[in-house]
């Protein structure tokens, strides 16, 4: 997937999240825990934004592409979600992703897939 316009610049242009701007994750969507998601969305770093950063340690970020680990940023959200749930249920046997995906509810995996598709 190629984008001609950086979503960050777009965010700036549209004034998205003008209050409490963050360098990453102003597109954080959905709620990850219970409670303050709305306030977070308006003011700061969302649960899903923080959770999604844990993936970077192996998979790299949008600006660093790992030579070894599969890239996870910028894919179609449904494809990502399908992969995560297949890992979780061992329908797609691999190495550590099943063990990691089982740490999250389906709703959380859905939110992660949506976030990673857009960031």
């Amino acid at each position: 997937m190629h984008r001609s316009v950086s979503p960050w610049l777009l965010a700036a242009a549209l004034g998205v999240a003008a209050y409490g701007l963050v360098g990453i994750g102003q597109f954080g969507i959905g709620h990850f825990g219970i409670g303050s998601a709305t306030a977070q969305q308006r003011n700061g770093i969302t649960d899903i934004t923080l959770a999604a950063q844990t993936c970077n340690v192996c998979h790299g970020s949008a600006s660093y592409i790992s030579p070894t680990m599969p890239a996870i940023h910028g894919h179609d959200a449904n494809t990502l979600y399908a992969a995560l749930t297949e890992f979780k249920t061992d329908k797609r046997p691999y190495t550590i992703m099943g063990r990691i995906a089982r740490g999250y509810s389906d709703e959380q995996l859905r939110a992660l897939a949506d976030y990673l598709a857009k960031n």
Binding site: F32, Q40, G44, I45, T46, L50, A51
Partner: peptide, 8 residues
């Protein structure tokens, strides 16, 4: 602001 829920 409210900090996000910790996950490690």
């Amino acid at each position: 602001t409210t900090p996000p829920a910790a996950v490690f």
